[in-house]
Design a protein around this nucleic acid. Structure first.
Lengths: 247, 247
DNA sequence: CGATCCGTTGAATTACGTCAATAGACGTGG
DNA sequence: CCACGTCTATTGACGTAATTCAACGGATCG
């Protein structure tokens, strides 16, 4: 799928316009160029362990990763899914509360933590962009809380598909209105979908099957066809029709 | 309860050491002083409406508020509870995705949005602190996702009590180890607890009753006694004992 | 003193979890 | 090419935690 061979320069970087560096000018970029390095990881690699103080701040150039919290008895919840241009890390010497693990082969653009903190002070357009992106992450986490707190299993699965479709097709045009067919490669197994949606693997599987039976989605296990995005959106439950039997 | 009469100066401000201004020096504080104003709201007041572009960025000096997302069919989820020193707002012209509403009479220290954005550029210790606090909010939202995705009703209620106890007794000392008795005034009704924990009012009420019956908590409806914090912590399910019957 | 709000409690219902068996998909080696 | 093991996904039958529906009790207030 994504080509990981070539180490891009910032100029030609695929995430140039969306990553934490997005707002930097040519001169500011030079400061980042000097400090950055690349790291390539296979699928299933642990990037950050829970409790670890990460040595680097990094951005996903290509690939994907999950942010996971695990209770001591083993219950797992994915609290984030990271796609290209998303960052991993937090300024300051904080132990990570999460495990970060690649879902696929992944290329990172990384900065040693101290160096990144210095850049935050020195490169004026970096901190505002980090603030902006962190607020977006906060919105995503709160949206997940709504999904987990208030939505049915079917709505959760539909919501995940909506979110992944929106993110992977980086819609400039409001996709919300598009009725045109659309395909989506799922980066997650059924078990991982369950870990993200607070469900069991069986329920995740059943709901995928039900959505398919009802014609909301098509395609294969990992490659989902969305014949009518608006329909999927309605199934996700954020758009106005109460689930059957809601008071 | 909290005294809202006196408008404090920054020097004597009760949230001086924890709010977004916490890292500012005496001189930086002067710039904030010049731009700030106060606003007092009764309980149940809407501070920000969903979809609105807020005109101000504000900090809670005293009181409390909820951050709520409502689905179009009326299902509600509190995605945050704000206590003194927490901020409300986001730099940039973003429509709020949430409703913010006071839980009790509340005093705000506020800045007109444009003025706050200028301060972010000009007062060096402001942006790093905002980043720090936003990451903390992100952690809280993700923690909530874990609670909503993976915990039982009893664990959810216990988790909320733990979180409120930790926050309201601004533990410098690790409260996690304290076995000493402790009291907590609940800022939330049973219905509001349910809205925060993704439960119904009946389930919230039943679980409170069950925790009381089992001696985990005592006190009255709104004033909770916690005879043994460690015990409550265990009930919250983050500390190692699987709930009965977990695979 | 009725009205309203909030909390509690009981009984019936249900969505999802649990347990269990089977079916594909994919790779390895004979 | 086929037999076999492994891993993931699917499907069925059953159990249960939480919801739903309903009734009631205790404050608070005009």
């Amino acid at each position: 799928m994504t080509e990981l061979r070539a180490i891009p320069t910032c100029e030609g970087c695929p995430i140039r316009l969306n990553a934490v560096c997005a707002d930097c000018g040519r001169d500011e970029l030079a400061a980042l160029e000097a400090a950055k390095s690349y790291r390539r990881l296979p699928a299933g690699a642990t990037l950050v362990e829970e409790g670890e103080i990460p040595s680097h701040f990094s951005s996903i150039v290509s690939g994907s990763a999950t942010v996971t919290k695990t209770l001591k008895d083993g219950r797992r919840q994915y609290v984030g899914i990271l796609l290209p241009s998303d960052y991993i890390g937090r300024p300051g010497r904080h132990a990570s509360l999460y495990e970060v693990r690649t879902l696929a082969e992944t290329l990172l653009c990384q900065f040693e933590r101290g160096a990144f903190e210095r850049l935050l002070d020195e490169v004026p357009r970096l901190a505002p962009r980090l603030i902006e992106m962190t607020f977006d992450e906060l919105d995503a986490a709160r949206e997940l809380a709504v999904v987990l707190g208030r939505k049915t299993a079917r709505e959760r699965v539909a919501s995940l598909l909506v979110s992944l479709a929106r993110r992977s097709a980086k819609l400039r045009r409001p996709l919300s209105e598009a009725d045109a067919p659309l395909t989506l490669h799922l980066p997650l197994s059924r078990g991982q979908i369950a870990d993200h949606l607070g469900l069991t693997i069986e329920t995740a599987s059943r709901q995928m099957a039900a959505l398919k039976k009802d014609g909301v989605i098509g395609g294969t296990t990992r490659d989902i066809a969305i014949p009518n995005f608006r329909r999927l959106l309605l199934e996700a439950g954020s758009e106005g029709n109460p689930p059957p039997g809601y008071r």
